[in-house]
């Protein structure tokens, strides 16, 4: 599992909780992966949209400005479950090797 997949997993996780706009997704990921450029995270977000794992719409939260929001699709939910499973398996393997 590459770092790229971990970022995708995080993006999908954030969207599983609630629909979010671009900066709402970028900010926590910038803190979690400080050595990864925001443009790379944004590129992954676009790719997820292109591949149909997420979709976008114009919306606003509690009278705030109109922004582009992202939401998880059904296939996105399946991709999230698959990546999460892969991550757990990898973590289990690492634990067996004594890497915590």
């Amino acid at each position: 599992m590459l770092k790229r997949d971990l970022i995708v997993l995080c993006l999908l996780r954030l969207l599983k909780g609630a629909d979010r706009y671009g900066y709402e997704l970028m900010r926590p990921l910038r803190e979690a992966f400080p050595d990864t450029k925001e443009s790379a995270v944004y590129a992954l977000l676009r790719q997820l949209c292109r591949e149909g794992y997420t979709e976008q719409y114009q919306g606003s939260a509690s009278g705030g400005p109109v922004r582009k929001y992202y939401r998880l699709t059904d296939t996105g939910g399946e991709r999230y479950a698959a990546l999460l499973e892969e991550w757990r398996r990898l973590r289990g393997t690492l634990a067996l090797l004594g890497i915590e």
């Binding site: 910038r30 450029k37 925001e38 443009s39 790379a40 944004y42 590129a43 676009r46 292109r50």
Partner: peptide, 15 residues
């Protein structure tokens, strides 16, 4: 520093 060079940022996002 945080977004990278403009050409790189676009290259990453473009099809």
């Amino acid at each position: 520093r945080e977004l990278g060079k403009p050409w790189t940022a676009v290259r990453l996002a473009a099809d």
